[in-house]
């Protein structure tokens, strides 16, 4: 029997129909087909890169020839997690400590601004505030950090202003305090935005109900606003914490003699010492810290506020 043109149409339609029926009966397959490509991308680019990182941490680098020696060893991890020579643990600890301090500072600073933007400001003011919050992000990060160097240095704007009103020098330049100030400044927008999103979502009638039940301002804040804003705060803290944890430029430009963070050690090992395996082993540490942090954040419902 010859198949002519008129019967090709129904055959095609039939095939299409049976294909959609096939997927309808197997919903998991439909999801796979939909999410497959982006998922493959994520796995290949992101997870494979992480796996490669972890694996190269078990190798060593022959300094003299610069060659990577593919012999499995725990040496790098032993050096990172050594309790006899705590150099690298101390560097990690000071990095985590700084990231935590910056996160808390940003949360405290961001909350009133976000609250005002979300619940008090009129639309025009709100739009203006949005622009002001986002404006610094339009200029390069390195330029903003340099600007702080000019403000804080010995003959800088800060000391000049202090002299003007008869006060002594602040002596902030190239200290851990100066790094804390600059980190808090550069990451602040990343805290304001998720907190704003969380606060904006609180329905007005919750606050009215709270007032009807006799709660005053502080009680309402503690029992209604703060718990509902918490996921936003945690979401913002993921940004401020992880961005500080991975940064190496601010310590280089603003930090003093103590400014040696995880990022600087990794940078020096890759860029100067050419010891990529050790850098990889050390880079696993912040990955673990962030994984732990994300697990806690998930528990606190931060991902619902993103």
């Amino acid at each position: 029997m010859a198949v002519d043109a008129s019967s090709a149409g129904p055959a095609l339609r039939g095939a299409r129909r049976s294909l959609s029926a096939f997927f309808w009966r197997r919903p998991w397959l439909k999801v796979t087909a939909l999410l497959g490509p982006p998922l493959a991308w994520l796995v290949l680019i992101y997870l494979a890169a992480l796996a490669a990182l972890l694996i190269s941490g078990f190798w060593t680098s022959d300094f003299f020839t610069g060659r990577i020696v593919h012999d499995w060893t725990l040496e790098n991890f032993k050096q990172v997690f050594s309790f006899s020579d705590t150099t690298y643990l101390r560097i990690a600890w000071s990095t985590i400590w700084m990231a935590a301090a910056v996160t808390v500072t940003d949360a405290v600073l961001a909350f009133p601004i976000a609250y005002y933007m979300a619940r008090i400001a009129r639309p025009r003011t709100r739009a203006l505030l949005f622009v002001l919050v986002l404006l610094p992000l339009w200029s390069s990060y390195i330029v903003r950090v340099y600007a702080w160097r000019v403000i804080l240095q010995e003959n800088g704007i800060l000391n000049w202003a202090l002299h003007g009103v008869g006060l002594p020098d602040a002596n902030l330049a190239f200290t851990n305090t100066s790094m804390w100030i600059v980190f808090s400044y550069v990451w602040l927008p990343f805290m304001i935005l998720p907190v704003f999103a969380a606060l904006e979502r609180i329905p007005d009638n919750y606050l009215e109900a709270s007032a009807d039940l006799g709660a005053r301002g502080f009680r309402t804040f503690r029992s209604v606003i703060l718990p509902l804003a918490l996921p936003g705060l945690v979401a913002g803290s993921i940004f401020t914490f992880s961005l500080t944890l991975g940064d190496y430029l601010t310590p280089v430009l603003i930090g003093g003699a103590n400014a040696q963070f995880i990022g600087n050690v990794v940078f020096n090992n890759v860029g100067i010492a050419n010891n990529v395996p050790f850098a990889a082993a050390y880079a696993v540490l912040p990955v673990l810290v962030i994984a732990l942090y994300l697990a806690i954040a998930r528990k606190l419902g931060a991902f619902e506020a993103l």
Binding site: T65, G66, G271, I272, A273, N274
Partner: peptide
């Protein structure tokens, strides 16, 4: 950018 880069 660095001596090590030259070697490699």
């Amino acid at each position: 950018g660095s001596s090590s880069e030259m070697v490699s």
